[in-house]
Design a protein around this nucleic acid. Structure first.
Length: 178
DNA sequence: CCTACGATCTGCT
DNA sequence: GCAGATCGTAGGG
């Protein structure tokens, strides 16, 4: 939970086949595993897909949503505790040209990488990168000394999880004010 | 085995 | 503003 907040301002970097792209994290959501109805691993539901969340922290959890979008998460807790932080939005920093190609030449603007699907698409992350160790070669997170005070962070309910009943009200979403 | 549906985005009406 | 896209997974038969 606090990790989701701390991730704001961190820089996520991907390097596939020598092509490097990077973006600053501007929006995250926390998913508290077994006790969180919005989480895939609610009630310690452990399946092929959610298996990744039970890994030790520091791996990528990527899954397909609506058959189209690849959503990128960071596993944050110890082994067998399925907590994760969803990266909902980034601000492009490096590899703009490459990101534009991936986003089919969409011009950089408000909707360029401001959603879970578009952010991972811009960074070139797909389900192939599920279970990838974030300390290894292709994807990692850098601390470039950027951090935000509470005054610069907006805390709200999470998005798109209305089915989670009372847990849909939890204030687990952290957004950098623009 | 088979069916329903989702942590969403885009394009068109 | 809204419906369609599109497919892996979960859960029931």
């Amino acid at each position: 939970m606090t990790i989701a907040k701390e991730l704001l301002g961190k820089v996520i970097v991907t390097n596939f086949n020598g092509v490097q792209t990077a973006g600053m994290i501007t929006e995250t959501e926390a998913y508290e595993g077994a006790t969180d109805k919005a989480c895939h691993a609610y009630g310690n539901r452990r399946t092929k897909r959610t298996e990744t969340m039970f890994y030790n922290g520091g791996v990528a959890y990527v899954f397909l949503c609506y058959g189209i979008h690849h959503l990128f998460n960071v596993v944050t807790n110890i082994s067998d505790v399925p907590h994760a932080v969803l990266i909902r939005a980034i601000e492009p920093l490096e590899g703009l040209e490459q990101m534009k190609k991936r986003r089919k030449n969409k011009k950089v603007g408000a909707t360029f990488s401001n959603g879970p699907g578009t952010a991972s698409q811009a960074l070139g992350i797909t389900v192939k990168h599920d279970k990838l160790d974030l300390t290894m070669s292709q994807i990692w997170i850098e601390d470039r000394g950027i951090g935000f005070s509470d005054a610069e962070i907006l805390i709200t309910k999470r998005i798109g999880i209305d089915y989670a009943e009372e847990d849909a009200e939890l204030l687990y979403r952290f957004v950098k004010k623009s």
